[in-house]
């Protein structure tokens, strides 16, 4: 078996910890996250509350576990949405390279790039009000041109290759060629980009929740935990530090995994070994 890079192991381990925490939270958390226990409010980390408690006396470890659920769900669905829309668009643009459809898709892409995810979220929230779903839509819309561009770029270089010519000579149309010959050969690119967008999605969800455009109470979310911690930062710094570390470690894990996957999957790197 091939030796896998260390970054991949570390990254996968970190990501797995948080995925596991999110899964376990469906069945069990150390304390309930919806009750208020004023008696035990603002406690520093201790044996009873590993990560301490917040201003309502809620157990921060439990909130982190449930919050992981929100973060991962939002990011996964937003990446799925970006892929589901962006990949076909990118394949279509590449199959039509130089044509009108390509031009329209790429101009549309440029236009969406002018709307950062936050701005899309602001627009959507202004119309429909804030919610986790709207955060997903905003991040998903933002992901779409990213995947379209990566797909098109990868596909364009493949369309110049002779095996595509051979498939055309074998009477295969652009749609079939895109699915049979292009997609399998850009899967690596998409997997790597997917992990990058996944980690960006977690950061974006945190930011949107922090400014109140994301998940609404009582759904626990890392971004909102930080927003609530802000006013208490001088008396209970652990309230701010712990959710932040959760974000950093998850994103770091995903990025390391993405880097590791690129090393394993990129044929250029692989050939050099």
């Amino acid at each position: 078996m091939k030796r896998l890079p260390l970054t991949l192991w570390i990254g996968a381990a970190l990501s797995a910890v948080f995925a596991l925490a999110a899964l376990v939270s469906f069945l069990w958390t150390p304390y309930a996250v919806d009750g208020m226990m004023i008696a035990s409010r603002l406690q520093a980390p201790s044996a009873a509350h590993w990560f301490g408690t917040d201003h309502f006396g809620r157990d921060i470890l439990s909130m982190i576990m449930v919050g992981a659920r929100t973060s991962i769900a939002v990011a996964v669905i937003a990446v799925g949405m970006g892929m589901a829309l962006g990949v076909p668009l990118g394949l279509l643009a590449a199959a039509n390279r130089g044509g009108l459809v390509d031009e329209i898709i790429m101009r549309g892409n440029d236009l969406i790039f002018a709307f950062p995810a936050l701005v899309i979220a602001i627009l959507i929230t202004a119309v429909f009000g804030p919610s986790a779903v709207n955060a997903i839509i905003a991040i998903g819309i933002f992901n779409t041109p990213v995947f379209a561009r990566v797909t098109r770029g990868g596909a364009l270089s493949l369309w110049t290759l002779d095996y595509i010519r051979a498939a055309e000579v074998a009477g295969k149309g652009p749609a079939r060629i895109s699915v049979e010959h292009i997609l399998p050969n850009i899967a690596n690119l998409l997997i790597v980009q997917g992990t990058i967008q996944f980690s960006l999605g977690i950061l974006a969800e945190a930011a949107l929740s922090y400014v109140g455009l994301g998940a609404q109470p009582p759904t626990p979310s890392w971004g909102r935990m930080l927003a609530e911690a802000q006013t208490m930062i001088s008396i209970a710094p652990h309230m701010a530090i712990i959710p932040g570390l959760a974000i950093v470690l998850t994103v770091l894990g995903l990025n390391l995994m993405g880097d590791g996957l690129r090393d394993v999957l990129d044929p250029r790197v692989r050939r050099a070994r």
């Binding site: 950061l203 530090i241 770091l252 990025n255 390391l256």
Partner: peptide, 18 residues
């Protein structure tokens, strides 16, 4: 830099304030 990319800027801002 890998760590730097993973840090949310608003959280980093809170740490700077602290």
């Amino acid at each position: 830099t890998q760590l730097g990319i993973a840090v949310p800027n608003f959280w980093f801002a809170m740490l700077l304030v602290l």
